[in-house]
Design a protein around this nucleic acid. Structure first.
Length: 274
DNA sequence: CACTTGGGTCCTTACGCACT
DNA sequence: AGTGCGTAAGGACCCAAGTG
């Protein structure tokens, strides 16, 4: 039995919409579907399959239902509008993009950290002197003719996501992990052992402080508040500028960055020797 | 005891390998 | 070559512990 058929079976049997994590749990218990290597099915895998079979399933507010009339009646749930991209007549995207990318608008983080809004938007990070990085990164920036190292989005809050997670390591910032890796830091050995998410490695407190100090000294940042079309704008920018440390969606992603991140993961997953 | 902070967990989606 | 499938990046949610 394929995974999506197994998901259909579960939804039919339970006769109500289910979360991806619930479906994974039920399948792991009833054995309707087993992975080739025998490992447990994760919620993310269910989500991936749901997206690959839009004709079979509907997804509303995080719960999955069967689409076919033979399946479960879809419960009425308050609808959240999934805004489709519409280029309306007063589209001010070009203005926002210019405002975001204009080098003059960038400032060091200590100068602006109290001003980052608790609102959604896009952010861009530049490096003052590309030569403060490892040679392969310096070279890549010179080839690209800019000093942009990361472009990201915060769908809820720039303050929490951009400032908190990315620049101050509160929580799990993708950029912070990548930067630490390319600066030559590695997490503490075994720090991911037993953790559910085997990717979100962290650095030691003292390493974190050193990275934050490096960020304050070497990086300048800018952001714009945006609500609509965040993903589309981000994707366009990634294609146009190919920032140094973005991986997903970046045609100029650097394999060396991925390798350094993988090395961090390897160390963090390693059983501590004693 | 309300508020803040830290961080564990969850969700979505792009990517790339494996199989047909 | 096309399709199926699993993994991991990127981002947000949410709760427990800390703080005043």
């Amino acid at each position: 039995m394929t995974l999506h058929v197994a998901i259909q079976e579960v939804l039919k049997e339970k006769a109500r919409p289910l979360r991806t994590s619930e479906i994974a749990g039920i399948l792991n218990e009833n054995g309707l579907y087993r992975k080739g290597n025998g490992s447990l099915i994760k919620a993310g895998q269910i989500s991936a399959r749901i997206n690959n079979y839009p004709h079979l399933f509907t997804k509303l507010n995080g719960v999955i239902s069967l689409k076919s009339s033979t399946g479960v009646p879809v419960k009425k749930i308050k609808k959240i509008s999934m805004r489709r991209v519409m280029v309306d007549t007063n589209d001010n995207t070009p203005v926002l993009v210019e405002k975001l990318m204009k080098p003059k608008n960038f400032n060091s983080i200590p100068e602006v950290e109290n001003k980052v809004p608790d609102r959604p938007g896009l952010y861009c990070i530049r490096i003052v002197n590309p030569k403060s990085l490892k040679p392969f990164l310096t070279k890549a920036l010179l080839e690209r003719g800019h000093n942009i190292i990361y472009i990201g989005l915060a769908s809820k809050s720039l303050k929490k996501r951009f400032l908190g997670q990315e620049l101050r390591a509160k929580g799990h910032g993708t950029f912070f992990r990548s930067l630490g890796a390319v600066l030559g830091f590695t997490p503490e050995k075994g720090s991911l052992v037993g953790k559910k998410n085997q990717n979100n490695y962290k650095f030691s407190k003292s390493d974190e402080q050193q990275i934050v100090a490096w960020i304050n000294k070497n990086l300048i940042v800018n952001w714009v508040e945006v609500i609509d079309n965040l993903n589309i704008i981000e994707n366009t920018l990634l294609k146009e500028y190919q920032p140094l440390l973005n991986l997903t969606g970046n045609p100029g992603r650097l394999i060396e960055v991925k390798q350094l991140r993988d090395e961090c993961k390897r160390v963090a997953r390693e059983n501590a020797k004693y």
